[in-house]
Design a protein around this nucleic acid. Structure first.
Lengths: 140, 140
DNA sequence: TAAAATTGTTATATTAAACTAACTTTAACA
DNA sequence: TGTTAAAGTTAGTTTAATATAACAATTTTA
């Protein structure tokens, strides 16, 4: 039924999700600005996403996520968040670089690896001694 | 001078590097088999890589990496190795899945994040107490 | 509220990466 | 050593993602 989306389409969905969260609405212009592409490119992508039942887009109107589209957008956002936290909080990578990496890797990390990463971060949060061991060893 | 390669071209270079390491030589057929593409696709990619000065390929002959091509191939292989080690040794991800993830992420990880990951793994290797903390917390 | 500016759409082109099909070269071997 | 099989190449097609340019709709504002 739902074949895997391309990285590009995932990015469109994620961006629409972000815009709706931030501004309540998402317009073609907002999407093109966020993704650094032209309106015409956005339009084509929106048609594809609409065909797949992941968004609703009335001509000249706002863009909305369907329930299924929202689920995918949330899923990608969650992957980005986990990767970002790992890079910044555990590895100590600079925020901007970490975000760029997360934004690319969020499309390729497997569910299994993601689950392990979540487990890892969760442990660091919960176990003070573990957190300390990381802080001690990762400093400088 | 050397613009960033596409993921596809990086994969061709990496594969050629692997084949030369394993078999001394790399042929079109070997490459197409490893990458699950057709010979014709390999040929096109080889022409592009040759144009960029990253390989040498005489018609109907073997494929060889130039010094520059070898450097890039090694670089990608190194990224894969680090990611694979992190996924398997630290996170405890299944080998096959870890390898698939590494093979995709090796094209997107930044030098900065890679460096931090190398530092992290190095510390785990060197510091017995750190290694123990991870083993203890990541078990089950 | 009409003209101008902005936003959105459509048609068409380009680039990258793959494919199939047809053809050529090289290698194997009978 | 001449056929056949395997490997390699070329030409042309497809798909995805972008772009530009021309046009249409909507919004702003004088």
């Amino acid at each position: 039924m739902n074949k895997k989306l391309t990285e590009s389409l995932e990015n469109y969905l994620e961006t629409i999700g972000m815009l709706v969260r931030e501004n309540k609405i998402a317009r073609v212009k907002d999407i093109s600005k966020k993704l650094n592409v032209k309106n015409s490119s956005v339009n084509i992508a929106l048609n594809v996403l609409a065909d797949k039942g992941l968004i609703v887009h009335e001509k000249y109107g706002y863009v909305e996520l369907t329930k299924e589209g929202q689920k995918i957008a949330d899923d990608i956002q969650r992957k980005e968040d986990i990767l970002l936290r790992f890079f910044t909080e555990i590895l100590g990578v600079d925020k901007d670089i970490a975000l760029k990496d997360a934004c690319r890797m969020e499309h390729t990390i497997s569910d299994e690896t993601l689950a392990k990463l979540i487990f890892f971060i969760g442990k660091v949060d919960k176990e003070a001694s573990f957190k300390k061991a990381i802080q001690k060893n990762m400093k400088e």
